[in-house]
Design a protein around this nucleic acid. Structure first.
Lengths: 225, 225
DNA sequence: GCCGAACCGTACCGTACGGTACGATTGTGA
DNA sequence: TCACAATCGTACCGTACGGTACGGTTCGGC
């Protein structure tokens, strides 16, 4: 609901880039997904996008600027999924959490996400880790915000309870993602059961409610640490 | 405390490499940790290790073989911590789980681990992802085995209960690591609370027991999914 | 119809790196 | 002492890439 507007901007002022530049970045993204950062050379991008290397340097400064632009472009494309309206019933709350878990699993397992994270992680060994910060800022943080508002809504309506929202979110994240992300980043493939994101998501949310759900018929000892 | 044995094998037959080769690989590891894969050129390794490039190629074939050797070398150094003896009391079991969690957090947050994972992930976009498979095989799998025997011991003694050991392990892993690993891979720094691995570990194990612990005074509804 | 800006395609430059070749050095067994 | 193997240090080669330069083309404003 926060990001209501800004929906028509598909070929327009997407993240301060011109349409032409967005088209180039889209091609670059395609190259990255297809062949990894090794394939993301200025010459190849220029060839794929039918533009000149000179234009690339004029628009993005240097190669690092171009990589940053690719990340920014992708981030501007997805935009935080508009999290609908906040839930009023316990069932709706659980459903929204499960939807969040499903979305998270789907997004992080996507080709584009994996390619961008690989790129940023590969560069993160450098001194500055600029790309890594960008990915965290434009990707992770947005996810955290969406989950945060959702969790807070659930807490205020007594569907769950916690003292530390950050800690609750990190637990939720861990229950959902487990070791899937890093394994996939390393090139591992998920097996059939793991690829059933619906089941995985609902299982994770079940566990989350066991940890943070309201005390019904069980002893009250919810995380004092 | 767990890794008692295997301490003298420092300059000896570590993973089928000669002592000289191990020394070279150690230098290479140092370069990698210090400067990332960008710094891991054959010329630099040769210079740092006072050996000739010709020897590098003779010993390891090509650059990829050298990188694989670095991974193998590091894996051979740590060796699965011999998981001591299996626990006989619930307290001992919890303590061992907490120790496992602490070790896992410490290892994955270490310079060497982060550098190697960054290297493998950066290369994983290539066609084969050979390094990624190697890291998974020599790193992840060993951890899974240690945890697996520990979990199984606890289950047989009724300290915990589960149907699917794989699923239980992945939950344990998620509760321990949360989003720490990927964040650190991306160059993010853990804040003070997150860096307190003892507290993090014991908190994660608390949560794990809430999900998989024996039914004491609470409703019996342990994960049927 | 003319002008200038933006841009394309291509050629070009310097450098860094993977990989190879070779003479010099060291150490070891007969 | 000699021969031989292993290795070192260095020089060398080809290639790929980041970055620049330049002539030709398109296109909007006047």
């Amino acid at each position: 609901m926060v990001q209501a507007a800004l929906k028509k901007a598909d070929t327009e002022s997407l993240a301060n880039f011109t349409p032409r530049q967005n088209a180039v970045l889209e091609k670059a993204l395609g190259l990255l997904v297809k062949g990894g950062d090794r394939a993301l050379t200025t010459a190849r991008i220029a060839r794929a996008a039918n533009c000149s290397k000179e234009s690339l340097y004029k628009w993005f400064g240097d190669r690092d600027g171009l990589l940053a632009a690719v990340v920014t472009y992708q981030a501007s494309k997805v935009r935080a999924p508009g999290s609908g309206q906040l839930p009023e019933t316990a069932e709706a709350f659980r459903a929204q959490l499960t939807g969040f878990a499903f979305d998270l699993l789907s997004v992080l397992s996507g080709d584009v996400s994996l390619a961008l994270n690989r790129l940023a992680i590969g560069q993160a060994s450098k001194d500055d880790a600029q790309l890594g910060r960008l990915v965290l800022e434009r990707g992770r943080k947005v996810i955290g915000l969406r989950a945060g508002t959702l969790l807070e809504a659930g807490r205020q309506r007594k569907f769950i309870q916690y003292d530390d929202q950050q800690a609750a979110f990190r637990t939720l994240y861990g229950l959902i993602i487990r070791d899937f992300h890093v394994r996939q980043l390393l090139g591992d493939a998920l097996d059939a059961r793991e690829s059933d994101f619906e089941t995985q998501a609902s299982s994770a949310i079940d566990q989350f409610f066991k940890l943070y759900g309201p005390d019904k018929n069980r002893a009250r000892e919810i995380s004092q640490t």
